[in-house]
């Protein structure tokens, strides 16, 4: 944990991208947490005068259903984040298992798994998700939607994890441990996991991004449970009420602005993390050895 905090501090200090990312993500999370102290229930409506532009009383204005956009969006953002995190975790479980099994088993098992894996990488996912959601949308909870989306969101990362495993398998220290009789499971956990974790972390954030974007897409098409407030369903309802044509632009602008902020921040975090974890800068930082003097 101390190490983790030091990394965060390092990143915050040295990389402006990460500084922006941390700040923006903290703001979005704080915003989502405010839903717990919201004076309004997201299900209730017409408690405020409808179609009010942003003001002191209603910082993000009110929509045509008489809901305060600020408080409503705290729930929407929270649900979208929760959904994204669940999806990312679920698809991580699939990606890590497949990547590790394919990487360590090797041979024919690896070949078969990778052929199937590549098919999933290439498949256009949206038409399939449209089909699934078309049939079962009415009953879908956030968890179910997360399961469906996670089922299609692992292939790319499984490949990355596998290639990382393959390169680790060839390293000196693996041979040393194998020859000195260390158990495979403890090699995996103590020697390899620290190397795989950074990749897992950055693919998790990427996946989170992808999942939240996918939810917006499906919701906009009317293919998610439109009774649950999320960033996507908020935009869906705004479109249904023709918010732009009737001049209620804040109904749309608020969720769009928050999601753009969130997306850019998460992405910059991935980029910053990638630079921090790059083996070359990592080596320089850890040892300060002659960077250009090889062998």
């Amino acid at each position: 944990m101390r190490g983790f905090l030091r990394v965060v501090a390092d990143l915050y200090r040295s990389d402006p991208r990460c500084r922006f990312a941390f700040t923006a993500i903290s703001i979005v999370i704080m915003f989502a947490l405010m839903s717990f102290v919201s004076p309004q229930d997201p299900g209730s409506s017409y408690y405020a005068p409808p179609n009010q532009p942003p003001s002191v009383a209603h910082p993000f204005g009110t929509n045509s259903r008489g809901q305060d956009m600020f408080w409503f969006l705290t729930f929407a953002v929270r649900n979208s984040l929760v959904f994204g995190v669940i999806t990312a975790i679920l698809s991580r479980i699939i990606a890590i298992s497949i990547g590790l099994i394919a990487g360590y088993k090797g041979g024919i098992i690896d070949r078969i798994m990778m052929v199937i894996n590549d098919s999933f990488v290439v498949l256009p996912v949206l038409p399939l998700l449209i089909l699934i959601n078309f049939i079962i949308r009415e009953q879908m909870s956030i968890l179910q939607l997360a399961m469906v989306i996670a089922a299609f969101g692992w292939a790319w990362d499984a490949r990355l994890i596998r290639s990382q495993v393959l390169s680790l398998k060839e390293r000196e220290f693996t041979y040393t441990s194998v020859f000195s009789g260390t158990k495979t499971s403890s090699i995996l956990i103590s020697e390899h996991l620290p190397f795989v974790m950074p990749i897992v972390l950055s693919t998790t954030i990427n996946n989170l991004l992808w999942a939240i974007g996918m939810e917006v897409t499906l919701a906009v098409l009317g293919l998610s449970n439109i009774g649950i407030p999320t960033i996507g369903t908020t935009i869906y309802w705004a479109n249904q009420h023709q918010a732009l044509i009737s001049g209620v632009w804040w109904w749309i602008a608020a969720p769009v602005a928050i999601s753009v902020l969130l997306f850019v921040a998460l992405y910059l975090l991935v980029v910053g993390l990638g630079a921090y974890l790059d083996p070359r800068t990592r080596l320089q930082r850890m040892k300060g050895v002659l960077s250009d003097e090889r062998a």
Partner: peptide, 25 residues
């Protein structure tokens, strides 16, 4: 071969989705 496989896997998934979902189409 990979291309054919993608098509077969994809279309099979498409076929199976409505037949295994809790509500049928």
């Amino acid at each position: 071969a990979q291309c054919l496989l993608v098509v077969i896997i994809g279309i099979t998934i498409t076929f199976l989705i409505p037949r295994f979902s809790p509500t049928d189409p």
